[in-house]
């Protein structure tokens, strides 16, 4: 089971009321390489992978939910108290017509989240390589988001999230090395 803790993993701040930034940030909320896809991908793979790496998938998958909450917080803060006029000016007119300022799992183009984003091949190496690729794609997305945003506080949070993808990618690479080892043989450093 999971236990919720009433705190963010990292203190999220945004400098300005800027719904335009929320419009592309949502890519990491409900997009193909976003935090929801990551969490669901790793937790789902746990059932068909050697025991040695189930702990890692559980823990990274759980951390991804903390990142999802950070992204949600950014979007929430960027759009909270924005008037319909501001939403329209920010290009969020279609979103407002459908959802008001409710968060919705879709990507920056408005395409709804789909399970097709989450691969599960059942082959441990194929699945871990998928995870490594997913982490690098998420890292790249954070880079493009930072490139476009001029909000220093928002970028601070996005940099934290980008760095986490680097660590996750390394851990998945290590998991591949562990699976390559002979049974019971210690990984040599």
């Amino acid at each position: 089971m999971w236990i919720y803790e009433k705190k963010l993993q990292y203190p999220v701040k945004v400098s300005t009321c800027n719904p335009r930034l929320a419009k592309f940030l949502v890519e990491q909320y409900g997009g193909a390489d976003g935090e929801l896809a990551a969490a669901l991908r790793y937790l789902n793979q746990r059932y068909t992978i050697p025991d040695k790496v189930i702990g890692l998938l559980t823990d990274i998958g759980t951390e991804e939910f903390a990142h999802l909450e950070m992204i949600a917080t950014m979007i929430y803060k960027l759009t909270k108290d924005a008037t319909p006029q501001q939403m329209r000016d920010a290009g969020l007119d279609a979103h407002y017509a459908n959802h008001d300022s409710a968060l919705f799992y879709h990507n920056a183009d408005g395409v709804p989240f789909t399970a097709a984003y989450i691969q599960a091949k059942g082959d441990p190496i194929a699945d871990l390589y998928e995870d490594i690729a997913a982490e690098e794609k998420a890292r790249a997305t954070y880079q493009w988001l930072i490139d476009m945003s001029d909000d220093p506080d928002l970028n601070d949070g996005l940099r934290f999230l980008r760095e986490r993808e680097i660590i996750h990618s390394l851990r998945f690479r290590e998991a591949v090395e562990i699976l390559k080892q002979e049974r019971d043989q210690k990984v040599f450093f």
Binding site: R159, E163, I167
Partner: peptide, 12 residues
């Protein structure tokens, strides 16, 4: 920084 280890830190 988003990591415990300077060797893995990459400012963007």
């Amino acid at each position: 920084k988003g990591t415990l280890w300077p060797a893995l830190y990459d400012y963007y």
